[in-house]
């Protein structure tokens, strides 16, 4: 069994990369490996949007990531610096920055890039999906 970490740079529904990453993550767990961490960076932070509402006949990416967390304990880490700039804030960041609403909820977590470095050092494999 290997510990996998994924780094996702691509926004949902703009590029295939987000789908590729989710497909890959499903394949990781289906083959008995551990899907340890997914780190959302660059435009990939939009995958964590709690406000995502795609049509019913398309895959719901945010739900896909949440399912990995619920069924396999995958950490869903969102870069806070990339997220804040792009409007991805949880309740505490929203109040910290004095903005009216929040757009990110558990199981997604806002974290620093340090967690990406940590994920790289503590996983057996790190695979990047980019636009």
């Amino acid at each position: 069994m290997l510990n996998y970490a994924l780094l996702l740079h691509a926004a949902p529904y703009s590029h295939q990369a987000a789908l590729s990453a989710l497909r890959f993550a499903d394949t990781v767990v289906a083959n008995g490996h551990r899907m340890k961490t997914i780190f959302f960076y660059h435009d990939g932070v939009h995958n964590a949007s709690a406000l995502m509402a795609p049509p019913q006949d398309e895959v719901h990416l945010a739900d896909g990531w949440k399912r990995l967390h619920q069924e396999h304990g995958t950490e869903l880490l969102v870069c806070v610096a990339a997220g804040l700039r792009r409007g991805l804030l949880d309740v505490s960041e929203a109040s910290r920055h004095g903005v009216m609403s929040h757009s990110l909820e558990a199981p997604f977590e806002l974290t620093g890039v340090g967690q990406l470095v940590d994920a790289m050092l503590t996983s057996d494999r790190m695979i990047t999906f980019a636009p």
């Binding site: 960076y41 660059h42 990339a82 620093g112 890039v113 990406l116 470095v117």
Partner: peptide, 19 residues
Amino acid sequence: THWLREGLDVALVAAAFGQ
């Protein structure tokens, strides 16, 4: 694009962590 900035950020943070 923002690629360069965010790539450098990763480098700086990793270095701040002692890598």
